[in-house]
Nucleic acid binder design. Structure first.
Length: 897
RNA sequence: GGACAAUUAGCUCAGUUGGUUAGAGCGUACGGUUCACAUCCGUAAGGUCGCAGGUUCGAAUCCUGCAUUGUCCACCA
């Protein structure tokens, strides 16, 4: 069946993917035994629903690298999976429950989890199909899920190790609390939103204090001032009674340099339970920590009349009460500050003290006594890990320097429960805390069966931090003896992984945590290179969101409409690492057009190129055009390969695009039509071009390749290796023997002549269909011109070409000069004046160029300091320009003559 | 408050270590039914590379300052 005039992506994509999958090509076990391993752990999408355009970005870039490495013969593993994403998933399911008017508490923990798991199973199935739609060639046989048995065991194992190494502790400390999620958050999970709010000034005994959060201040009894502040010097150490929200209280004044004298009144009260700094201050001065706000965001009994009410909502009422007492000094209505909110639900975060589990990032680990912070830092500093683009390395260091202990316990039901067991005194136990990877039957200390597991689950990033090695079989696949880790199986083959490709937005959340975990657990980096891509934004540079349908690009809409290849190309071409991509549908449509162009190049070669070699060209071997296009192919193979190796995917695609379109299609194919009998060459060019394009646009290239292979049967002998699928086709290699600079120069000359004639035609208003005559004069190149007479005729629409190497040249003709070839287009006397003006303009331009060049070449400094090849180039250029002047002048004379 | 980045054609963006005439796609203008492709072909127009200094024989590229935009981090009651 003949191929259709336009490429219909949706007709082929699913079946092509199936072919790949069934061929076993995705599985690295099918690679040669001694092949070099290359591996990528796919960032596991959250098991919360559907893939968005950001996921396409990562899939496309990773698939590109994976396919390239598979083609160069590496043992290539791309391991897919999904993340249970504790808070995000729980939130989503809770929202769904809320629509039915139910809460997770009504269901109870066990039922709720079962409910979530059902949802996750559906969601994961959906994600799998979506990943396939993009064309991702990942090894499904190794797919993992963060709640898999093996991965859960890894989580417990790491926790126990860290606990035993003194890196994990439980403490009553300030945490970020989301009253809506009802859980702690790590520092990184808190976002800041600028806000204009009221700032209140209160008369508090002898001073005036300022606060934005009066609802936290019920039990404030300590005033802090700066020791050097002259305003308050005499007050330090004094005690006094003052009227306050719930009646008179006794307060006293202390001094600490932490106070900023320029902020507010320079005097503040300590709110130990609801501010990180105040909590530290309270500890320092042994002040009691009294909780004013509880885990629901409500005021505690310490708030007297306000007890039980929502803290934030009570603010105004509290102010009214204080106003009535005459305690309010004044209110600043325009106070600018940042409100901390939960990154998952945007609810304002309450800092409050709580008993939680933490990872100590400063304590020495068994890995060379370095702290986790130091381990993270060294991995990058030592260049064992390279981050692309490099500027993110600085950002990474800065983050490490500011890092505080990591709160890892969450009051979420969905996730890995902490492997911590308490011997409950209430049940007659001894109160011991037991940390154990496997659930113990009885308390190790009192031997009673009174153990209750900690209700909390892990921060989801704790488990995803293990992703690169937990997915490869750790802990079973590793043994540690005297600080040396011995790896087996996949872990030995594929870890450290080669590349971590992900968005820069999760550098801290995830990339840093993976480095922490791998360095601590295995003493090696989780990956050698981190490639960070940017965000996909709408065309206005704003985040895409479901509420803005007009700018939202959904891969699942776009793929059926334009094809996965078009989407893929739009994620790669013109995109650089770490920079955001502004995307609209038009852009994708333009890449659809490009894919279609490639389709038609292939279609022409496969279906229309003549079978029989023309007798003349067959005898003479390669024509100039042949030698040129083959030589150029070599250059392009080298360029594309280098660019991909250096992670410059956009430039790789650009070089290929230019070769395929501007050279192969526009010139070589046209020349082949003139010369005839080019089928073998066209076929081998097509094969190489399809292979080079395959990592970028795998579907259309695979379809064309299979068509080509079918069509080329008569040309292929048994020995020539032609794998049935392009996905396993070897990457084209550079063959120096085909480099032919002479052919490149010769062909460029012919091409330039044709372009110059076309240009002159348009400028002189000659319609494309109208054939004209040309006289070409060149004593030096007449043979080359003679050979290419048919090319000139066809591609420049000439009906008569005269090539002369001596004698008179026509006058009153359009005159063109290309290198040492003179072209005359005798068009009569139609546009003499225009021609004259044009020549005069060109003369002037060339003159000024010559002048600046002469000046440069006369400059002794330049001659002395610039590299010789640059000087030489400049001299050559000058000679060329002078040559041009001479000819322009000749031309001018011809017209005036 | 600190840091990072961006600023190049009307729009979206490339431009590897400083080297001459700064590129692409889209858009625009003009012209095309030659049998692969109108999702196409041909030709062209369009840029003092944000501004001001500096280094250099030579700067879009390196340095300093400024402006605008964006992002991240910190956060003070």
């Amino acid at each position: 069946m003949p191929l259709s005039k336009t490429y219909n992506a949706s007709e082929y994509e699913d079946s092509v993917y199936k072919q790949w999958e069934e061929s076993g090509a995705f599985n690295p076990d099918s690679a040669d035994r001694g092949a070099k391993p290359f591996s990528i752990a796919m960032p596991p999408p959250n098991a919360t629903g559907t893939l968005h355009i950001g996921h396409s970005m990562m899939l496309v870039l990773q698939d590109l690298m994976i396919r390239y490495h598979r083609m160069i013969g590496d043992k290539t593993l791309w391991l897919p999976g999904t993340d249970h994403a504790s808070i995000a998933t729980q939130n989503k399911v809770e929202k769904m429950l809320a629509k039915e008017g139910r809460t997770r508490h009504e269901l109870g923990r066990e039922q709720f989890i079962a409910h979530v798991e059902t949802y996750v199973a559906e969601s994961r199935a959906r994600i799998r199909t979506q990943i396939r739609k993009v064309g991702a060639s990942c090894d499904w046989s190794r797919e993992r899920y963060t709640l898999d048995k093996g991965l859960s065991r890894a989580v417990n194992e790491v926790f126990v190790r860290m606990y035993n190494d003194g890196l994990i502790y439980r403490d009553y400390r300030m945490v970020n609390w989301c009253p809506r999620c009802h859980s702690t958050l790590s520092d990184d999970e808190v976002k800041y939103k600028p806000e204009t709010t009221k700032f209140y000034y209160f008369k508090f005994g002898p001073v005036i204090i300022g606060t934005a959060r009066p609802e936290t201040k019920f039990q404030d009894k300590t005033i802090v001032v700066h020791p050097d502040d002259p305003r308050y010097k005499d007050l330090i150490g004094k005690e006094f009674m003052t009227e306050w929200i719930e009646g008179p209280i006794s307060a006293h004044v202390i001094a600490d340099p932490i106070v900023d004298q320029t902020f507010g009144t320079g005097a503040m009260t300590i709110t130990p339970a609801h501010s990180f700094e105040d909590f530290d201050l309270a500890k320092k001065y042994h002040r009691p920590v009294v909780k004013i706000i509880d885990e629901d965001g409500n005021l505690t009994k310490e708030a007297g009349d306000f007890a039980g009410k929502n803290a934030r909502e009570s603010r105004e009422a509290i102010i009214e009460k204080l106003k009535a007492k005459g305690v309010v000094d004044h209110i600043d209505e325009q106070y600018q500050h940042n409100l901390s909110v939960c990154y998952r639900c945007d609810t304002p975060v309450e800092p409050l003290p709580s008993l939680q589990w933490f990872v100590n990032v400063n304590a020495p680990t068994p890995r060379g006594k370095k702290s986790l912070k130091e381990l993270m830092r060294t991995a990058v500093e030592s260049k064992r890990i390279t981050i692309i683009p490099h500027r993110f390395e600085k950002i990474y260091y800065h983050w490490i320097d500011n890092l505080r202990d990591w709160c890892i316990s969450r009051q979420i039901w969905f996730g890995h429960q902490l492997p911590v067991y308490y011997c409950k005194k209430e049940k007659g136990g001894c109160g011991e805390t037991v940390v154990s990877a496997d659930k113990p039957d009885f308390c190790q200390k009192c031997k009673k069966e009174t153990l209750i597991q900690d209700e909390d689950t892990f921060d989801t990033w704790f488990s995803s931090g293990l992703w690169t090695f937990s997915t490869l079989g750790w802990p079973d696949a590793a043994e540690e003896k005297a600080g040396k880790v011995k790896k087996t199986g996949d872990l030995a083959t594929f870890h450290p992984t080669s590349v971590m490709e992900t968005g820069y937005d999760i550098l801290f959340f995830w990339v840093a945590r993976m480095i922490l975990m791998s360095e601590y657990v295995l003493g090696e980096e989780p990956f050698r290179t981190v490639y960070l891509h940017g965000l996909v934004l709408d065309i206005e540079g704003k985040k895409m969101s479901k509420t803005k349908e007009e700018t939202l690009i959904d891969p699942l809409d776009v793929i059926p409409k334009y094809g996965a290849d078009a989407l893929r190309a739009s994620m790669v071409v013109g995109v650089t690492p770490g920079n955001d991509l502004r995307l609209n549908e038009e852009k994708i449509a333009s890449y659809r057009n490009f894919v279609n162009k490639l389709w038609n190049i292939g279609r022409y070669i496969i279906e229309f190129s003549e079978k029989e070699p023309a007798s003349s060209s067959a005898k003479q071997g390669l024509s100039t055009a042949d030698a040129w296009i083959i030589s150029r192919l070599n250059v392009v193979v080298e360029e594309v390969t280098t660019h991909i190796k250096q992670y410059r995917f956009s430039q790789a695609a650009e070089a290929l695009r230019s070769y395929t379109w501007d050279e192969l299609a526009d010139w070589y194919v046209e020349c082949a039509k003139v010369e005839g009998g080019k089928r073998p060459i066209l076929f081998s060019l097509l094969r190489a071009v399809l292979a080079l394009w395959h990592p970028f646009i795998p579907f259309v290239t695979e379809v064309l390749y299979q068509q080509y292979r079918e069509a080329a049967k008569d040309l292929l002998d048994e020995k020539t290796e032609q794998p049935p699928l392009l996905i396993t086709h070897p990457w084209p290699h550079v063959q120096k023997k085909y480099t032919d600079k002479k052919a490149e120069e010769d062909f460029t000359l012919i091409r330039t002549i044709i372009q110059a004639i076309r240009n002159a035609r348009v400028e002189n208003g000659i319609s494309a269909s109208q054939k004209i005559q040309a006289v070409l004069y060149s004593p030096a190149r007449s043979e080359l011109l003679q050979t290419h007479e048919p090319h000139l005729k066809r591609l420049a629409s000439l009906d008569f070409v005269t090539i002369i190497d001596k004698g008179d040249r026509p006058s009153n003709a359009i005159f063109l000069k290309i290198a040492d070839v003179e072209v005359y287009l005798p068009l009569g006397l139609m546009r003499i004046e225009e021609e004259k003006t044009k020549i005069a303009k060109q003369l002037a331009e060339t003159q000024s160029q010559i002048e600046s060049l002469r000046a440069r070449l006369a400059d002794q400094q330049f001659l002395a300091k610039a590299p010789k090849n640059i000087v030489k180039k400049e001299q050559e250029h000058l000679a060329e320009l002078q040559d041009k002047i001479t000819h322009l002048q000749e031309q001018q004379e011809k017209f005036t003559a």
